[in-house]
């Protein structure tokens, strides 16, 4: 599934599609493997979770079911920096958890909560991972890069990450979010938006080199 926006997806649309997936799946126990991408990430390629191996597979095997065929606009790499790989994987995981959130909320509330925890963990690791790509300094704590992230990308809104940090230190409120699915989904959307904005800022400041293969 490729969203037409560049880097930062439309969260209203995301929520609508989450309902579409939930309605289509119902209570059927079919495992869906979905790779949600956006055109910005697809074209840049560094944070595309699909590697070069998929190019031929998708060219020959994939069937266009809805909308445009974007396959010739996707950039794949055979080799990626391991941190790019982690960010690519986590971006896919974060988006997928929201795409299937309505289905999980209706059918398996435990899984709904598990995916929320996974999303927060993935998003809170983004600052130190993106800073590692920039300066190659390994930081132990997930929240230790907030200040340097802000100074590197002054226009980036880090409020969603500060809320995650606050939640991690306030378990009564964290547990309260578990019991409020609407708030949980809103929180997830903001967290994903932060992740996408970090990627957008990084790609804007550090464009893909022409010699990158």
């Amino acid at each position: 599934m490729i969203f037409p926006e560049c880097f930062v997806t439309d969260k209203k649309l995301f929520r609508q599609i989450s309902v579409v997936f939930a309605d289509a799946l119902g209570d059927k126990k079919i495992k869906l493997q979905v790779c949600p991408l956006d055109l910005g990430v697809a074209k840049d390629g560094r944070f595309n979770s699909l590697t070069e191996d998929f190019r031929n597979h998708l060219s020959s095997d994939a069937k266009i079911l809805v909308g445009p065929d974007y396959r010739d606009r996707i950039n794949y790499f055979r080799f990626k920096d391991s941190t790019e790989g982690v960010l690519s994987h986590n971006l896919r995981k974060a988006r997928l958890s929201i795409l299937l959130s309505e289905h999980n909320r209706r059918n398996d509330y435990g899984e709904f909560l598990n995916k929320f925890d996974t999303l927060l963990s993935a998003v809170s690791g983004v600052p130190k991972q993106i800073m590692y790509l920039i300066d190659r300094n390994l930081r132990a704590s997930r929240f230790s890069s907030l200040e340097i992230l802000s100074s590197t990308f002054p226009n980036l809104d880090i409020e969603p990450l500060e809320r995650i940090k606050w939640l991690y230190n306030n378990h009564i409120e964290y547990d309260g979010v578990y019991h409020n699915p609407e708030e949980l989904v809103d929180f997830s959307m903001d967290a994903l938006g932060f992740f996408e904005n970090v990627i957008k800022s990084y790609v804007g400041k550090f464009p893909l080199g022409k010699n990158r293969k």
């Binding site: 599934m1 490729i2 599609i17 597979h57 994939a62 079911l65 909308g67």
Partner: peptide, 29 residues
């Protein structure tokens, strides 16, 4: 399996969201 795929495709098409793309691949297809 077919019901899920058909419903997913028809609902996404009904949404009229221009530019949104969905491909199927793998053994089911």
């Amino acid at each position: 399996y077919y019901e899920v795929c058909d419903k997913l495709v028809s609902r996404l098409m009904e949404s009229g969201e221009m530019g949104l793309s969905l491909m199927g691949h793998g053994s089911f297809f």
